[in-house]
Design a protein around this nucleic acid. Structure first.
Length: 525
RNA sequence: GAGGGCGUAGCUCAGCUGGUAGAGCAACAGCCUUUUAAGCUGUGGGUCCUGGGUUCGAUCCCCAGCGCCCUCACCA
């Protein structure tokens, strides 16, 4: 789509139009334009790339004309009095201001000109009148295009219709734009271009800028909140010799000098636990993880997770921490604690219900999760894959089909069967389950937490069992991690929270791609 | 990986039952010194995603491919 402007489009159709356009636009700069024209003709006759489209040629002609006036079209430093948003908010008649931004609108009315100037805090109208700026400046003004960046000095006033406006006394070209902007009223709607050329999305859709500002605010406040409670942030390896801490397919890579096979991490868990052994009692990491799995509105191959460990706590501590953190973050976008998402509303006010995994299953299915015969029968009825898969895998599939649709939440699903959770400590009260919860909000899994297994003997047994079960991403046991644990890892609560998904909830974004600036796209060509 | 939808001017979109395409914005030339999706007059702009096929004739029908979106599967 986008590429067609630069790929082999036939030159025939544009041949006559383009040099014609150059000529008519050149004005006082005939020499420049004719030089460019002859270059294009040369390209054509030698069978080179097609000439530029007229729209681009016009803009280049403007750029050339600016240069011809001895002015650098790429500007330089501009000191402003303030950002546009605050200036408009604190209007003061006659105040002298200096602002910079992108021209996003232009209305010519006789010898009066109105421009819309936008920076990332807001929009303000400019009023440019020949009587004020003078003939020379008007000549330069007429070379401006939508999308150009300019700096302006002038006085504030309000027009008849009450719009805050800068009466421009002087202006500077800060950057000429050589390509046209998307449509001013509808913005950029093409989803593919929005993701591939996010800068255009940010320029023409203000709510997109707003979403990513909110993301930044959420993440920085997230860090601050944890830091206030004594947690320290660390960075552990993203390139790991053995990928662990989750069940997912890793990306592979290679280090040349060490001739070493490496994996992009699927989770930081095993390294953060080494830090628990080392005595970091409250530790977290907010960073990227990479999983070589499918892509969906809720899954991007690289995604951001907050993983956190708290020595001497447990999964109950994690639930309280999660409620507190998310309630706090929800206040950044909604004062009430009720979060609007996808046409529904979710009340983040703690405490949130806690429901046992096995109870939820019993309620929905009408029989016991461990009842192999009935589970298999139900799975077949639901047309789920049965094959030779272990009981827990089939039963968990059935659970997801029957229960997940009801988890509008926020709700903690607690106490999972041991078989589903290799890194989790068994419940003292019920030997069949582990102390684990998953947090669901809007039917999305938002967080996953454990009372961490710190018995190195049992840990080894569970790893070995996983390997014989041929689970993906578990081809080798991380011996180094087990050695660390044998030195003594404190009992601890641990949690992983999906940062992108929390941002989705708090910004009412239906797709994870709307909260990731550059989501993964297939290569063109 | 499977199923469904979409791909038309720089952008946003029309285009009937097959007769080689239109509008608005943007661009260009004019008119207008408080407009604001400014207005009015005029002009230019298209590999109808790509490649085959059917047909006298394909943006439209058929086949294959590419890209994006949605649902499902894997996963968080």
């Amino acid at each position: 789509m986008q590429g067609c402007s630069t790929t082999g489009r036939g030159a025939k159709g544009v041949r006559s139009a383009c040099p014609e356009a150059e000529r008519s636009r050149a004005g006082g700069r005939r020499g420049e334009a004719e030089k460019r024209m002859s270059e294009q003709e040369k390209k054509e006759t030698t069978g080179g790339p097609r000439p530029e489209e007229k729209l681009l040629a016009d803009r280049r002609a403007h750029m050339d004309a600016v240069k011809a006036k001895g002015i650098d079209p790429w500007g330089g430093r501009h000191d402003g009095t303030a950002s546009i948003g605050p200036i408009v908010a604190a209007y003061e008649e006659g105040r002298e201001v200096s602002v910079a931004g992108r021209i996003t609108g232009r209305r010519q009315f006789g010898k009066a000109n109105f421009l819309d100037l936008r920076d990332w805090t807001g929009k303000i109208q400019l009023y440019v009148k020949k009587d004020i700026v003078g003939d020379a400046a008007m000549e330069l003004f007429n070379l401006l295009d939508l999308g150009d960046l300019i700096g302006v000095k002038g006085k504030l006033f309000k027009t008849k219709t009450g719009e805050t406006t800068v009466e421009v006394m002087e202006f500077r070209v800060l950057t000429k734009s050589l390509r046209p902007l998307p449509e001013k009223w509808h913005g950029l709607q093409n989803v593919e271009i929005r993701y591939r050329q996010r800068y255009l999305d940010l320029i023409s859709n203000p709510e997109v800028m707003e979403t990513f500002r909110k993301r930044s605010l959420i993440v920085s406040e997230w860090r601050r909140w944890l830091s206030e409670r004594g947690f320290i942030e660390v960075e552990t390896p993203m390139m790991q010799p053995i990928p662990g801490g989750a069940a997912a397919k890793p990306f592979t890579t290679h280090h040349n000098a060490l001739d070493m096979q490496l994996y992009m991490r699927i989770a930081p868990e095993l390294y953060l636990k080494r830090l628990l052994v080392g005595g970091m009692e409250k530790v977290f990491e907010i960073n990227r993880n990479f999983r070589n799995e499918g892509i969906s509105p809720r899954h991007n191959p690289e995604f951001t997770m907050c993983e956190l460990y708290w020595a001497y706590s447990d999964y109950n501590g994690m639930m309280e921490l999660t409620e507190g953190l998310l309630m706090h973050l929800s206040r950044l976008t909604s004062t009430t604690g009720r979060v609007p998402f996808d046409g529904r509303e979710f009340d983040f006010t703690p405490p949130w219900p806690r429901k046992k995994y096995l109870d939820l299953f019993q309620e929905k299915a009408g029989f016991d999760w461990f009842d192999h015969e009935k589970v298999v029968a139900k799975a077949r009825e639901l047309k789920l894959e049965v094959g030779k898969r272990p009981h827990e895998a089939i039963a968990n599939d059935v659970w997801e089909h029957l229960v997940e649709a009801d988890l509008s939440g926020p709700v903690f699903v607690i106490d999972f069967p041991v078989e589903l959770s290799p890194l989790t400590k068994r419940s003292a009260a019920d030997n069949r389950v582990v102390e684990r919860f998953e947090l669901y909000i809007a039917n999305m899994e938002i967080a996953n937490a454990y009372t961490e297994l710190n018995d190195p003997i049992e840990q080894r047994e569970r790893f070995e069992r996983q390997i014989t079960a041929k689970e993906e991403g578990m081809e080798r046991i991380d011996e180094d991690f087990l050695v660390a644990q044998e030195h003594g890892m404190p009992p601890a609560g641990g949690i992983g929270i999906g940062v992108d998904r929390v941002v989705m909830l708090l910004t009412d974004s239906k797709s994870i791609r709307d909260v990731i600036l550059f989501p993964l796209m297939r290569n063109l060509e």
